[in-house]
Amino acid sequence: MTDQLAPAALGPSVGAARLPAARWREPSILPGFGLSLGLVLTYLGLMVVLPLAALALRPWELGLSGVWQALSEPRVAAALRLSFSLSALAALLNAPLGLLIAWTLVRYSFPGRRLLDALVDLPFALPTAVAGIALTAIYAPNGPIGALAAKVGIKTAYSPVGIFIALVFIGLPFVVRAVQPVMQDLDREVEEAAQTLGATDFQRIRHVVLPAVAPALISGVTLAFARAVGEYGSVVFIAGNMPLKTEIAPLLIVIKLEQYDYAAAAAIGLAMVAISFGALIVINTVQLFLAGRGRR
């Protein structure tokens, strides 16, 4: 009884000062917060923070002028430009393709729909080297599709076109799987109401469907872009790996490592991280803008 009255007897200021500390010591409804937080911080520290810190510190062994010289080499600049430009183009192409495939799988019933749905995940299941060999066999000049393209003067394999095809192949499932669940949960009564009010099919898709799936679509495109930028196995076989022409940045990093030029390899990797981080900021800004418009 005396212990319960002690805070009040000591005065309101002392009791109020002790109250937050007492609440902090109260057991949580969900126990294990300290252990869970410790495991999360340990994992992030070992698997994310330390590698990124090492990547950020290693290039400066060359000094500022050495880092700039390593990144301004024509071969490095061409590889970075090729990787990021083709990755962006592939992600942009995957946006309408993924949206169309997700729409078809969700809105229509037809024979083989489950098989088609399973085939969407094929790039996830295939080892990247196997995917690269398969794409090269198809799009090589003596392959079934590559031979047809060669007749009209289009070189697919061993050219930027082949790299673009490989990046579209590995990035498409990200867009489909990001959009598909949102489209499944989309209330069709809203579309029916818009159609009842006289909206055309185009207006219904533009004003009802697209605003609902836009955040998921942007997330899928972002994942496809991120995967394409760092893709190596499925691209290296079909690219041809010609310096200044079809050499991607991940391959150039591997070449630098094989030459024991670790600082230059880290400099290229740091440049890729910086460019990817900038692209991520832009994409998140677009998502916030679209979310703000959706609340109005």
Rank of each mutant, 00 (worst) to 15 (best):
F202K: 12
K155Y: 04
W60V: 12
L116S: 03
L290Y: 14
V106T: 03
E189Q: 13
P215V: 15
F169V: 01
V176P: 04
S219W: 08
L99E: 01
L55F: 08
Q203V: 11
A265D: 11
R75H: 01
F169M: 05
E231D: 08
I238Q: 00
G220S: 01
A131R: 10
A16L: 15
G63P: 12
M47G: 06
I165W: 00
V161C: 03
A54V: 13
P59A: 02
K245Q: 12
V273H: 03
Q203F: 09
A90V: 00
R75C: 01
M272R: 01
L80H: 05
P160I: 00
F164T: 02
M47V: 13
A6T: 10
A91T: 06
S87I: 08
A88I: 15
A264R: 04
S85G: 10
E61Y: 12
T222P: 13
I218R: 02
A271W: 02
A263F: 13
L126I: 11
I163Q: 02
G38R: 05
G45T: 10
W68E: 07
Q287K: 13
L126W: 03
S87K: 05
G233N: 12
S28D: 03
A78D: 13
E247V: 13
Y232F: 15
L92I: 13
E191G: 11
W60L: 09
A291E: 14
R81T: 15
G32N: 01
G233M: 11
F289S: 15
A166G: 06
S28A: 07
A228V: 11
E231R: 09
L167N: 02
I248L: 05
G198I: 06
V208W: 00
I101N: 02
V273M: 04
A157W: 08
I268P: 09
A16M: 15
L86V: 14
I145W: 10
M1H: 09
R177G: 03
L57H: 14
A214H: 00
Y43F: 13
A291N: 11
P127W: 02
A8H: 12
V48C: 08
L97Y: 04
L57C: 04
